[in-house]
Design a protein around this nucleic acid. Structure first.
Length: 240
DNA sequence: AAGGCTCTCAACCGCTGTGCC
DNA sequence: TGGCACAGCGGTTGAGAGCCT
């Protein structure tokens, strides 16, 4: 299959204002249709771009910064076991995105593993076997390596009226103004308060995201018909 | 100080899977 | 069953920071 590539694509870094609009929109109206969202949110972006930005950067339960030794070892182990299935690996590393893991692997871990393989085959085996000694599958390796689970974080207070949990995940459904639902999977308490504060500012500052579509408008109703299927949740079961 | 090189990460792309009509 | 729309995935690459000469 021939892949046609644009000869030169100027990358557009997201501006704080764009981040602001996207976050405000999602926090208020949730996620329904990525393709239509940019228009409703007043963004000159593709739906894909918005989705990527949210998933990899803006989403509350995303941990950024250095990977711990345990996380590194988990990635090495899972990559060996699963291959370059980054989303599957990310599912076993709460708070890390597939893009982050992929980048980290490509820029650092891959080199290290190759180096280890070249220098000492036994050194690499040690890392893998130390995991496999205690765990015969990837599912349990996360627990083995002390990767935080939902219970490691204090349950955040809920904004709004309704909270529901399903199984072991902290999956929250929040109703605001009786007209729309915001949902978030577990959020670290630190990020949660940041987001909550931000959301409260948004709700209090009418017109701040004036280009976003009002939930009561005809336009909003037309596209929110499709909104919210609890089964369709990227984070429905992050530890599977 | 300046130019080139390397590394990291955010963002883009095309492809594939899934659900709906 | 086929076509379409959309979401998600993994590979790739541009931008920018930092390092080196």
């Amino acid at each position: 299959m021939l892949r046609l590539r644009q000869p030169y694509v100027k990358k557009r870094t997201w501006t704080p204002d764009e981040d602001h609009k996207l976050t405000a929109y999602i926090m208020r109206y949730g996620i329904c249709n990525w393709n239509k969202m940019p228009k409703f949110a007043g963004l000159q972006r593709s739906g894909k771009s918005c989705r990527l930005r949210w998933m990899n950067y803006l989403r509350p339960n995303v941990r950024r910064g250095n990977f711990s030794r345990e996380e590194e070892e988990t990635i090495i182990h899972l990559q060996k076991k699963l291959g370059n299935r980054w989303s599957a690996i990310a599912a076993r590393l709460p708070y890390r995105t597939d893009n982050d893991i992929k980048n980290y692997w490509n820029t650092r871990l891959k080199k290290r593993v190759l180096l280890d393989n070249n220098n000492s085959a036994s050194a690499t085996t040690k890392i893998s076997s130390s995991v496999e000694e205690n765990s015969c599958d990837a599912d349990s390796s996360a627990a083995l390596l002390n990767i935080p689970t939902t219970t490691d974080f204090p349950e955040p207070l809920t904004y709004g009226t309704a909270v529901s949990s399903s199984g072991c995940q902290c999956h929250q459904t929040v109703e605001i103004d009786n007209s729309y639902i915001m949902r978030e999977t577990f959020v670290s308490s630190e990020n949660y308060w940041e987001i909550l504060s931000f959301l409260e500012q948004q709700l209090m500052t009418e017109g701040l995201d004036c280009e976003a579509v009002s939930p009561n408008s005809q336009l909003w109703h037309s596209h929110h018909e499709l909104y919210y299927d609890p089964v369709d949740d990227f984070w429905a079961n992050p530890l599977i």
